[in-house]
């Protein structure tokens, strides 16, 4: 029989020391064992730099230490976004080529892990990047379910900007791009996206043509002046 050690009966400083010497993979596994364990790992303060949900690639948790955690990368093969089978987590270290991967029973979908990592790595928002539509790994509905009620820090959209922005409210920053084949925004879509841009978004980057008059442009409330606006038409005094 393997030897045992009553970790939680140690003085609190010693428990912190023990956790400090666990690598990230061990800490993640430890944090899944109980709420108490989860809180201990949170208090170890291995904070995340960001948590990204890249719809074309999967989820990434970048930590201030040299580790990156990846999951939900291959939905078709091993863990659908709402799968009932455990979702594999990969941990890589920038300075160490050894990669560790493991599933944890009970942590089935991407959502389970996102919420768990937001908690234990003290990061309150998810950055979401949609990318070109034909490269999405998940359906729009699945993504809505996964991100439901989660605060989105940075939202990055390439196509269907209106549809996405309507469904995923942004907390912090927005990046809007387009593919060559996508038509320019018109009618209701143009009106909607202008409304979003005028809204209270702290950081904004627009890499596509969105026509608007100077008055609208000057009514923007964000702190950071957008870099990618260019003069579209001098005749009607509008910028795009």
């Amino acid at each position: 029989m393997a030897s045992t050690f009553p970790l939680l009966r140690l003085p609190s400083r010693a428990i912190k020391f023990v956790l400090k010497y666990h690598d990230i993979a061990e800490l993640i596994l430890f944090s899944t064992l109980s709420n108490h364990a989860k809180n201990l790992v949170k208090s170890d303060k291995r904070n995340a730099l960001n948590i990204e949900f890249l719809v074309c690639n999967g989820c990434y948790v970048n930590l201030y230490c040299s580790n990156t955690i990846m999951f939900g990368e291959s939905p078709q093969q091993e863990c659908g976004i709402e799968s009932s089978s455990p979702c594999t987590v990969r941990v890589i270290d920038r300075w160490d080529p050894v990669e560790i991967s493991f599933p944890v029973p009970g942590f089935n979908g991407v959502r389970d892990w996102i919420e768990h990592f937001m908690f234990i790595f003290n990061y309150s928002m998810v950055d979401v990047s949609f990318g070109p539509r034909d490269e999405w790994k998940y359906s729009h509905e699945s993504i809505k379910k996964v991100l439901k009620c989660l605060p989105i820090g940075h939202l990055s959209v390439f196509e269907n900007a209106c549809e996405i922005v309507k469904n995923f409210p942004i907390m912090d920053s927005l990046y809007v791009d387009k593919t060559d084949s996508e038509p320019e925004l018109q009618g209701e879509d143009l009106k909607f996206i202008k409304g979003v841009l005028i809204g209270n978004i702290a950081r904004l980057e627009v890499n596509r043509v969105i026509s608007m008059d100077l008055g609208t442009l000057f009514s923007f409330t964000f702190n950071c002046i957008p870099q990618k606006f260019c003069l579209a038409s001098e005749k009607d005094n509008s910028y795009s």
Binding site: A2, L7, V18, E26, L29, F30, P105
Partner: peptide
């Protein structure tokens, strides 16, 4: 404490629970 941390190396969650005598919720 490093020695205690080393006990977790290569363990599955179930093994980790047994080694550290961690109670469930």
């Amino acid at each position: 404490c490093k020695k205690v941390a080393n006990m977790a190396q290569g363990k599955t969650p179930a093994q980790l629970r047994r080694v550290y005598l961690l109670p469930s919720d």
